[in-house]
């Protein structure tokens, strides 16, 4: 199951990221995962939260430019070779990764990887054949 991620346009200026976190904090939104991509003059914050719809609403009302995207999330054992095994499966399934980032769960022994791929639904099927099951949104809440 692919999960939903919100991408937020940020001007590359001091204070822009904290304007966003300030808003989310004031609405008591809990971030599960966050990654930042940047160029010289703008950035994209990608986040997964406890309530995607509420987050999207708040951001749009706060006049942030947002995009809802589908990503795949996998649990990775927090041990040497954990990620490598997962990526081998991507190789075998012929799935190209656009970008990825990691986050940790409340359980110290587990890490989670979030992947952006061109066609999440097809990639999910191909990965399933390799025995890799992506997480559902309700499973992400455990993070």
């Amino acid at each position: 199951m692919s999960i939903r991620q919100i991408s937020v346009f940020l001007e590359n200026r001091p204070g822009k990221l904290s304007e966003m976190t300030e808003l989310l904090a004031s609405k008591e939104i809990d971030m599960r995962a966050l990654s930042l991509a940047e160029t010289a003059d703008f950035g994209i914050a990608r986040l997964i939260t406890n309530d995607i719809e509420a987050t999207l609403n708040e951001l749009v009302n706060g006049e942030f430019i947002t995009k809802l995207t589908k990503v795949l999330a996998f649990e990775v054992p927090n041990e040497p070779g954990g990620l490598n095994r997962l990526l081998k499966g991507f190789n075998a399934a012929g799935v190209n990764i656009e970008y990825m980032y990691s986050c940790f769960g409340s359980d110290r022994n587990r890490a989670y990887m979030i992947f952006s791929v061109a066609d999440p639904d097809a990639a999910e099927e191909a990965l399933k054949e390799q025995g890799l099951l992506s997480l559902k949104e309700d499973e992400i809440e455990l993070i």
């Binding site: 346009f9 160029t39 703008f42 994209i44 430019i65 947002t66 995009k67 995207t69």
Partner: peptide, 15 residues
């Protein structure tokens, strides 16, 4: 000004 129509999650496309 960035607009919702012009924005995508893909940095390469925005660039």
């Amino acid at each position: 000004e960035m607009t919702p129509e012009m924005f995508t999650d893909n940095i390469g496309e925005v660039q």
